[in-house]
Amino acid sequence: MSSLTDTAAHAPAPRGGIAQSFSDSLVITKRNLIRMSRIPEMILFGLIQPVMFVVLFTYVFGGSMQIGNSTDPDVYKNFLMAGIFAQTVTFATAGAGAGIADDMHKGLIDRFRSLPMARGAVLTGRTMADLVQTALTLLVLAVVALLIGWRPGYAAPTDFGKIMLGFALLLLLGYAFTWIGALIGLSVRTPEAATSGGLIWLFPVTFLSNAFVDSSKLPGWLQPVAEWNPFSATVQACRKLFGDPGLSPSDAWPMQYPVWASLIYSVLIIAVFRTLSVRKYRRAEG
């Protein structure tokens, strides 16, 4: 048996920089994915919720919504899907926040903080694991959407590449929002607070938008809010890329160039909230 003080087992010199950041984040991502796989009910609830939303919205509001000049439930159904997809990815915020709040108040965080690991890796690993979970949820949701009658290309021609780009923008938005969740998780005392804190602000963000209603039918003062809402940009981008009906005709820049707007918004959110979160993580004293 080899000795406990075997110098062969001394810590190798850290590679430092991006390479180490990346590999440490992957180690933590793997850790979180293993955890998630051992708590499968969490994944299950994460799946049931958006599926319920799709079904409820389609059949409850479907007949009474006017999109452009149409009240055809089929139009609303095809209009709705991009909104539900986008809303679903933003819900990853709450999971990430709760997970990080939980980690911060367990002894394990002391282990991490006493290791020569990259500073942001605990948070980055968690957000990347959430991204994997979001992708899985989105996949299931897309299948359900197709089953109940979503038809990409319903209103305008599309192709596989565009559809994939749409989903990529959705995942990027979801990833950006997990960093907001991370900051919330680092700012509260309990995982429960992070869950509710991570959810409440999502309601105004996702409803004061073009996700569920035609934004041109909102009260006048709300229209600019909805049109400049980062969340709306991704919804509009998806509708455009998927060939869905109900594109906002607004002159607002994010509605005119939604793919770019979505990309810029998400990258900005990541840059700001990742910086704030990592700083807060480093300052937090157990």
Partner: peptide, 16 residues
């Protein structure tokens, strides 16, 4: 951190 090992008062392990 490269030169130390820590075993804190309360076990710091991932339960799952």
């Amino acid at each position: 951190r490269r030169s130390i090992g820590l075993s804190g008062q309360f076990a710091a392990v991932d339960e799952y």
